[in-house]
Simulated assay, not measured.
Amino acid sequence: MTICALSYDLASQRLSSTSGVDLQIGPFVFNLRLHCPDLARLLYELWRDYPLAEGAAVRDFHIQATSNPAPGRWLRRDVRFFVDGRTPFPLLPAHHHLPMLEWGLNWCIAQRSHHLLMLHAAVVERNGRAIILPAWPGHGKSTLCAALIHSGWRLLCDEFGLVRPEDGALLPLPRLIPLKNESIEVIRSFAPSAHIGPSFYGTRKGTIAHVRPPTESVERMHETARPGWFVFPRWVAGSPLRLEPMLKSEAFLMVATNAFNYEVLGQTSFELVGRMVDACDCYSLVYSDLDQAIKALDELTRAADD
């Protein structure tokens, strides 16, 4: 049963109760408690496809978000994020509730998932093989990922490439894709069918809006994928498309430096990244036009399937 199978009133009541709601998101179970009605309304819309994890033996994270009047400022409300009863972040204005929650979930995963190799990468899949898109902030990773999942690819994740060390499988974590600033209208124009939530202005990353994962990606979030390609994207305004093979030694260094916990896992991550790079074709991608970029990636991956 998914959260949207409940009526909104029942879902809201359970989210604000002392026991909260258990949700399965990829390999993790989140216990969620909200005392922030605007956020509950938005999650009911954007998280609608996540299944309830009722009766889960283990909850990976206990999350709470509360909205209260700002101290000494009666006309303003603040929102606070808690994990396991502690708050790792300062207060934010209440109207930044969803960005805070999504950043908070990223923090939880990055801090406590060292049984997996965590790459800072978007991952999309088709026919069982995945394109891994490691990139630094501002290189157009999320924009390209949102375009790909509305062009026939399945979303595994936009932020975390989760790799299981024992077999190198990529684990899906299909969450909201945060678009920033100009990218919001780019995706609205490119993919009119994309479900994009409201824009949040004046955050520490500028204006943010979130793309809801396609329902199929959430329904298939227990299906792993195997790495097929590493593609390192970079958006450059006005640039002609360049999709060029990379030396595997260079790709290894770029994958390692785009991992959240490479040093933590030590030899395990060294060997795992080496096996992945050896097994994958590696490319750099410079683009300014999404249609051209997606056509090039489609041709690249289909040629490998022929």
Rank of each mutant, 00 (worst) to 15 (best):
A146H: 01
R154L: 12
I131Q: 05
P165G: 08
S183D: 15
A191G: 12
E185K: 02
P172R: 08
A135L: 09
G138C: 09
S142P: 14
L148K: 03
C157Y: 08
C145E: 01
C157Q: 12
A130T: 12
R154S: 15
L173K: 01
E185I: 01
C145N: 00
P174H: 10
P165Q: 05
I184K: 05
P178H: 02
L144Q: 04
G140V: 09
H139A: 13
G152S: 14
E125M: 12
L173T: 02
A135T: 05
H150M: 10
L144C: 13
G138R: 04
L173H: 02
D158R: 06
I149S: 03
I184R: 03
G128C: 14
G168M: 10
E166Q: 05
S151N: 07
F190I: 00
P174R: 06
T143D: 06
S151D: 07
L179S: 06
V163F: 00
S151C: 10
R164A: 02
G128D: 14
P165A: 12
E166Y: 08
I177Y: 04
A146Q: 05
P172A: 13
P165L: 09
E125V: 14
H139F: 09
V163I: 11
F190Y: 06
G161E: 10
H139I: 08
N181M: 04
E125Y: 10
L155N: 06
I131D: 06
T143V: 10
S142A: 11
V186Q: 05
V123C: 01
A191H: 10
L162K: 00
W136K: 11
S151V: 05
L176Y: 03
E166I: 13
I184T: 05
A169N: 04
H150K: 11
R188F: 02
A135C: 10
L133A: 11
C145G: 00
I187G: 01
I132E: 09
I149W: 06
G140W: 09
E182H: 09
G152R: 15
I177V: 09
N127L: 15
P165N: 03
P137N: 08
